[in-house]
Amino acid sequence: MIQLSDELLNKYIDGELEESALKEIHEQLKKSESDRRRLAALQTIHSELASLKMYQVSEDFTSSVMFKVRKNLKVVRKDRNFIFSIVTIFIAISLIIFGYLIDWAIGQSSGIGVLTENINNYVNTFIGSFSIVKDLFTTKNLSIIGSIFSFGIIISGYLFFESLKQSKRNLSKLH
C-alpha cells in the first residue's frame, strides 16, 4: 500500500501543491487511516508552532541600548574633533612655514624681478620638466598665491580655535 511521504504532507500543509497532487492526496487520505493520523499530527504541530512562545527582554532594555548608542556617538564625535584639530594644526604650521619662506626669499632679493628669477632657477633645478608648475611663479601669480595662502591661514586659525572650543565644551559635559 502506498504511503504519503512526510515531504508531501509538509508541502500539503504549506499549500505548495498543485491541484492534481491535491486530488491524489485527498484520495489517499480517504483510504489510509495511518496517513490521516500522520497528517493530523503534523497539523497539530504546525498550529502549535504558530503560537510559539515569545521571550521578553528586561523592561529597561531599550533605554539601556539607547544609553550605549549615545555614549558611542560621543566617543565618535570626540575622535572626529581630535583628528580635525590635528589636521588643522598641521595645515596651519605648513602655511606658516611656507609664508615664512616667501618672506625670507623677498628679503634676500633686491627686487621682485630678481626674486622671480631665483624662484625660476629653483624650479628649474628641482622640478626640471614640470614646466606647468614653473609657469605659476610669475610676478602676477605670486601675489595671487600669497593672498590665497594668507586667506588659508586665517580660515585654518578660525577652524582650529572653533574645534578647540568644541573639545573643551565636550570635556566639560563629560565631567
Binding site: L42, T44, I45, L49
Partner: peptide
C-alpha cells in the same frame, strides 16, 4: 516538524 510529529505520535 516531522521529528515533533513523530514524538507526538
Amino acid at each position: 516538524r516531522n521529528e515533533l510529529k513523530n514524538l507526538l505520535l
